[in-house]
Simulated assay, not measured.
Amino acid sequence: NFFFLFLLSEGGITCPTTEVANSVQRTGGVSAYQVGDNLTFTCSEGFQLNGAQQITCDSSGQWKPQPPQCVPIPDDKIQPSPGSCGVPPAVSNSNVHLADRFITKTSFFSGQKVYYNCDVGYVAAGGRKSRLCNNGKWTPLKLKCQRKLCGSAGDVQNGQFVYTGVEFGDTATAVCDEGFMLVGHATRHCMNNGWSGRNPVCEAAVCEDPPEVSNAEITGLQHEPYTYKSVIRYSCRAGTLVGEREIWCTKHGTWSAPAPECKEITCPSPNVPNAYWTGNHNQKFQYRATIYIECNMGYVMSGPGTVYCERDGRWLPELPKCQRRRFVNQWG
């Protein structure tokens, strides 16, 4: 709908200047037209005329017929014109992409601009965002895009982040101090909207209560929790301790070794032919029991005269042998 002014002057009835969007018609600075004057319209590239191409100023001070409109030509009906350009060529390794409104177009008239945006995770760092179709050739794209900056991923109590970088695509991996264990996801990723996820937590490594051992006493007990480097010691009330006497809580929240055992270890009776032993009056030869072996009269010993019972149930160094003494006839 157009609103027209009736301009009355000393020369008679006139028609006002009218403009049609997206047309190449020019008024030439004329502010009013006389009855009988004509205006002819031509649409800009990519637009088509909807209405009369020529209108006339009539005696009522109005343009007849009404001024036309220049509306966009549907993409499937655009005919390539001399100097037009095809689809803009891709710009490799630039981290930019053509704006959505230009993606479906296949032809562009000379003088038309297209616009670009930075890829996800990138921000403009200088240069124009547009390029121009100039007589069948596209001008170079000057837009520069750089990775977004995420900055610090935050603090980790009792630990720290190890970074590959602080820009889009980089990672921050939490590493706990010795004696602390990670709770949560260790790695955060620098995304388009900042660091992914939440900061993990480093909690003190805690071991379960030390295992009880039959016939053993535990020293070094403390009130829970048993944290990193807590040490406990086992001693046997009866039998021989087999295993580690001391164990400690490791940085992984486990004890450094299985609990030992208190076993009754005995060695077999030291049966040495032609010998007798002294030094142990018990019926059982337990670990560390020591005996002294002597040969009967007329026999000589080959091997150690003192042996002891080892923790594996053997006599060490080894049981001796008693061999009959050889007599030499000195009188020939």
Rank of each mutant, 00 (worst) to 15 (best):
G151L: 14
N50P: 00
I291C: 03
L241D: 05
P260C: 04
V123W: 04
S92D: 14
L49M: 15
A275H: 08
Q69K: 15
N135W: 10
E264F: 05
E261Y: 04
P88F: 09
G83P: 07
V166A: 06
K284I: 05
C15H: 09
G29P: 14
Y287G: 01
W138Q: 02
C70E: 13
K113M: 14
N1T: 06
M297A: 04
D119N: 09
S94I: 02
K148Q: 07
I247R: 01
F2L: 15
V175S: 10
R314L: 10
A52F: 03
S107L: 13
N271P: 00
N282I: 00
G303N: 10
G197S: 04
D75A: 14
L7D: 13
V206W: 11
G313E: 08
T173V: 03
E212W: 01
N271W: 02
G151Q: 11
P88E: 09
S107W: 07
F168W: 13
R147L: 02
T106I: 05
A216T: 00
T164N: 03
C267E: 01
S256P: 13
V120A: 15
A204Y: 01
Q283D: 05
R128Y: 09
S214L: 11
Y115N: 11
N296F: 05
G253W: 01
D209I: 02
S256K: 12
V24C: 08
I247F: 02
A21S: 02
G184V: 04
P65R: 02
L182D: 03
M181F: 00
A216W: 09
Q66A: 08
C133M: 06
V162N: 15
R314V: 00
Y115S: 10
C309E: 15
I73L: 06
C15S: 09
L316P: 00
L5F: 11
T139P: 00
G220C: 01
E19L: 12
C70G: 10
A259H: 07
E261Q: 13
G239Q: 02
P270K: 07
D75R: 13
Q25L: 05
R311P: 02
I78A: 06
G29I: 03
T139I: 09
I291V: 12
S130A: 08
H97F: 09
T250V: 07
N117A: 03
C145P: 07
T106G: 10
F285E: 06
V120N: 14
T266V: 13
W248N: 15
H189K: 01
T14D: 11
V156H: 03
T139Y: 05
G239T: 03
Q62E: 12
D170C: 05
Y276L: 13
Y287I: 02
G332N: 10
A172F: 09
G159M: 08
F47L: 07
W277D: 01
R128I: 06
R245H: 06
N117M: 10
